[in-house]
């Protein structure tokens, strides 16, 4: 792999894990809004198998174009093995599409095989964009070292201001993605469909994804975050606080778009379910927002 600076057995695996995590999280970042679009589920379940294979071929083509010029792995300016790197990127997009559809109960064992294939194939294409450009989303590691004239880091800002900045960034990121989804019919619809036992999994998934994007995937600023001081800069604390911020944003935007009314007879558990479901894209947005500041 290009540009590896450490070559121990562990570092090879760690680097590969980082590359794959970055691809996965990039897929979640760009693909999430379409995963929450019911038309893609309907098209996926009625699409013919040759059509589904066409979606997969297009996904591979998109990935091939990106990795040839931009590279799939970190710090590789252009892939030296574009054919197989594109295959790996497509495979990651398939994994992202499958995991998110399964979490939203849009893939389960009661569905016919054709529906599984169709839904995964249709969603693989938009998710592929995210996987393919993951290396270049939000800057790679080391690309945002503060230099002269750049924004000072959080230590220089002071802890209180840094916390406000971080929460503000998480709030803005969560708002950006949740505004895209909250007014649609998908969230109330999913809230009635998703089994109750899925909810703890969805919460853990949101937290894990948020943690992976900021602290594991190797996007810009990861090292600074891990090593900087401050109450908000402990990875676990930051992840949980950011998730709580995301949930608050979800509650607000769902109320804003009349998905429920305060003081009405709406079942609190349904509201809770809606908030948790919208919390997945919101936490992704919050993570991206924190990386951007």
């Amino acid at each position: 792999m290009l540009g590896r600076t450490s070559h121990t057995h562990e570092s090879v695996w760690a680097q590969e894990t980082d590359d794959l995590l970055r691809g996965l999280t990039g897929g979640f970042l760009l693909g999430t809004p379409l995963v929450y679009t019911m038309e893609t589920w309907f098209i996926g379940q009625s699409v013919s198998m040759p059509h589904a294979l066409l979606f997969l071929a297009l996904s591979y083509g998109i990935n091939l174009g990106f990795v040839t010029f931009a590279g799939f792995r970190q710090e590789a300016a252009g892939s030296q093995r574009p054919l197989t790197d594109a295959l790996e990127a497509t495979s990651l997009a398939i994994v992202v599409a499958t995991v998110t559809l399964a979490l939203l109960h849009q893939l389960h064992f009661g569905l016919p095989l054709g529906t599984w294939v169709g839904r995964i194939a249709v969603l693989t294409m938009p998710v592929s964009f995210g996987v393919a450009v993951a290396n270049h989303l939000l800057g790679g590691q080391g690309t945002n070292e503060p230099g002269e004239g750049e924004r000072p880091n959080s230590q220089a800002l002071g802890q209180a201001k840094a916390v406000v900045l971080e929460i503000g960034a998480a709030f803005a990121g969560a708002l950006l993605l949740s505004l895209n989804i909250a007014p649609t019919e998908e969230i109330p619809m999913l809230a009635t469909e998703v089994p109750v036992l899925y909810l703890p999994l969805i919460i853990l998934f949101s937290l894990g994804l948020s943690y992976a994007i900021v602290f594991e995937a190797g996007f810009g600023g990861q090292e600074q975050r891990v090593h900087s001081a401050g109450p908000f800069h402990r990875p676990l604390t930051e992840t949980v606080l950011s998730y709580i911020t995301s949930l608050a944003v979800c509650l607000f935007v769902l109320w804003l778009f009349n998905q429920f009314e305060l003081g009405s007879d709406d079942d609190w558990f349904e509201i809770y379910t809606q908030v948790v479901l919208l919390g997945v894209p919101a936490s992704v947005g919050a993570a991206a927002g924190r990386l951007a500041v």
Binding site: E16, A52, L87
Partner: peptide
């Protein structure tokens, strides 16, 4: 291209498996 290390080989093998599984399912369905 330099030779693949062990981690890259595993990634490629798993990726191939995922793609083959999905294409195989589509072909079976068809």
């Amino acid at each position: 291209a330099p030779p693949r290390n062990s981690a890259e080989k595993v990634t490629l093998a798993v990726s191939l498996g995922v793609i083959v599984l999905l294409i195989g399912a589509a072909l079976f369905e068809q």
